[in-house]
Design a protein around this nucleic acid. Structure first.
Length: 559
RNA sequence: CGGGGUGUGGCGCAGCUUGGUAGCGCGCCUGCUUUGGGAGCAGGAGGUCCCGGGUUCGAAUCCCGGCGCCCCGACCA
């Protein structure tokens, strides 16, 4: 049992003026975290209790799937990072020791764990393996933000699977899905497992675990039975009626009209009747990407569709080859054209004329230019999946799982001998969870105007006892007695034994968000009762002899 | 990396325009009173006004340079 009179819980009435996100404000106000610099946060004693409970759940579930916990250093030689090519990552902290040897601060531990596996795994008999640890990660983030949501140093649970073939990887992947689903359920947050981008890692599949909330940095497209990061989401576009059957396209003067909005307004057409031309460099090769006027190009989907590195082309790279910015179009363009699959190739559209102040109307893709079709647009709220409109919500990424393949094992020589004596690269997967983000997500999702409302499993304490009465009073003695009894029952108990006013104690209790509150005061004791209140419910009087069983009942409902 | 903002006791802020030796609320300490939703009275402690340079008799305030922090966007293996 902890006593607030001697516990370091620095609560504040007002949030730091520059704190924007709700979780940032409340976690600071409740005395859980304190800032040391941009992206550097300390966990105060009560906050660390939350973190510890989250990592306890993680450990429990990782053990349940047979994963083996270990510990690898943060500071490590740079050599394996050169071998995997990740030494060039901007976010990687690099430094030199006194001899001038280059070292790095690990941002994840693929290089470290794969180096070990390369040394000690020789045979197919040594596989499969799932290794994991809880360790600090260092990342030179360009913009840390929102308290512990995006920091330059944080603790991550990272696991790595090692298998002999794709079927083994699939099995390891499924095991981790089982563990992850249970971890996020037990932590009491709302979450989705969504399809995500495999990106430059080139793996064969990836999912992210997303906790929806206002402070989220990611966007998730949702429909019944469907959840995907908007980076990769695919959906049926909202229908628009478009003309067809023109004999040929015609020129239309559009002086000074360089945006879709301006051209559509001027011609009194919906934006969807225009084609937006987006000049792209794909592996430094100029392309022209066309999406419907009311849509946006999705660079990640474009890169995935074309299999190259994508960036928007600069004006000087396309102006002499295609036409002036604001009037780009496909007709007469001599570069490869990518047509978003939403565009009806047999309909007539308005496009840029590739000359200043000129657009073309009644342009029919099938008739007027050559193209390749691909799904390269970002989905919009209201698009359809299985006939149902999608919504798009902000969310925090609290975990990710990734089929890595052989990228690291090949670079670092992690191989095994199969039954025929043939050397094969190990097939890897990686699996991450940010405990701090789980805590922040729980705050974001469940807080009310009075403060935090922790899910039972990750609350800093199970029960907070508020004693109305100063030191030496009968009320405090009784509160101590009740606290000791609950403590003996295995509950984590916080006793507010401070010589403060009742109002202040209640306000601090609401702010801290412990799920069950017991109030021990003279009024109640005269009737032989204490008040039991859940953080988000009404209070009830409980006879002194029934306190333990009542608390147990409520915790049974909460868990 | 672009854009915007901000830096004054622990927290929130005023003072800066028009230079004159720093103030308010909360918190903190002591005493007395008070105890079921952020108590009252009295007394008190605590500030290199982010840093460096300049102007001036005199700088929190004006000028120059730097740094920190926050927000939006880009980025986020």
């Amino acid at each position: 049992m902890e006593r607030l009179s001697t516990y370091l819980l620095p609560t504040e009435r007002e949030a730091p003026a520059d704190a924007e996100a709700l979780s940032h404000q409340l976690m600071v106000r409740a005395g859980l975290i304190r800032q040391l610099g941009a992206g550097f946060w300390s966990w105060m004693p009560a906050g660390w209790r939350v973190h510890q409970r989250i990592t306890g759940i993680i450990r429990n579930e990782m053990e349940a799937i047979g994963a083996q916990e270990m510990l690898m250093p943060v500071l490590m030689p740079s050599e394996p990072w050169h071998r995997t090519g990740r030494i060039g990552i901007q976010e990687l902290f690099k430094l030199n020791d006194r001899k001038g040897t280059e070292l790095v601060l690990a941002m994840t531990h693929e290089e470290a764990v794969t180096t070990h596996v390369a040394q000690v795994v020789r045979s197919y008999r040594d596989l499969p393996l799932i290794l994991w640890h809880l360790q600090t990660k260092e990342r030179d983030e360009p913009r840390p933000r929102a308290g512990v949501l995006r920091t330059r140093e944080f603790i991550m649970k990272d696991a790595y699977s090692f298998d002999r073939d794709e079927a083994g990887l699939e099995e390891s992947y499924q095991k981790n899905i089982i563990a992850y689903d249970r971890i996020f359920d037990r932590c009491g947050i709302e979450w989705y497992r969504v399809e995500s981008d495999v990106g430059m890692m080139g793996g064969s599949g990836a999912h992210e675990y997303m906790a929806p909330c206002a402070a989220g940095e990611n966007e998730v497209a949702l429909a019944p039975g469907y959840a995907a990061n908007v980076e990769v989401a695919s959906a049926e576009a909202q229908h628009v009626d478009l003309p067809s059957g023109s004999a040929a396209h015609t020129e239309v003067a559009t002086p000074g009209l360089t945006t879709i909005e301006e051209v559509a307004a001027s011609l009194e057409l919906p934006q969807a009747a225009l084609l937006k031309a987006w000049p792209a460099m794909v592996d430094e090769q100029l392309h022209l990407v066309l999406v419907r006027g009311d849509h946006r190009v999705n660079e990640i989907k474009l890169a995935n569709a074309l299999g190259g590195v994508v960036r928007q082309a600069h004006a000087e790279e396309f102006e002499t080859i295609i036409g002036p910015a604001g009037f780009l179009g496909p007709v007469g363009a001599t570069v490869p054209i990518v047509l978003d699959q939403t565009i009806a190739t047999d309909r007539d559209y308005v496009v840029g004329g590739n000359r200043p102040d000129l657009h073309l109307r009644d342009v029919n893709p099938a008739r007027d230019f050559k193209f390749k079709v691909a799904d390269v647009r970002s989905v919009e709220a209201g698009d359809l999946v299985n006939g149902v409109p999608i919504t798009i919500e902000p969310a925090i990424e609290v975990g990710n799982i990734f089929k890595l393949g052989t990228r690291y094992s090949e670079a670092l020589g992690a191989t095994f001998l199969d039954e025929t004596g043939k050397q094969q690269p190990i097939i890897m997967g990686s699996y991450g969870i940010g405990p701090a983000r789980i805590a922040a997500a729980a705050v974001e999702q469940r807080a009310d105007e009075n403060g935090i409302n922790w899910p039972s499993a990750i609350a800093p304490w199970d029960v907070q006892i508020v004693s109305i009465g100063k030191s030496g009073s009968e009320e405090l003695a009784k509160a101590e007695e009740i606290g000791a009894a609950l403590d003996a029952d295995g509950l984590a108990v916080l006793l507010d034994d401070r010589d403060a006013s009742p109002g202040e104690k209640f306000a601090d209790a609401d702010l801290l968000g412990v799920p069950v509150r017991l109030t021990v005061g003279r009024k109640g004791l005269e009737r032989g009762v204490v008040e039991l209140k859940t953080r988000d419910g009404e209070s009830v009087d409980v006879a002194l002899e029934d306190v333990a069983s009542s608390v147990a009942d409520i915790r049974g409902e909460q868990l």
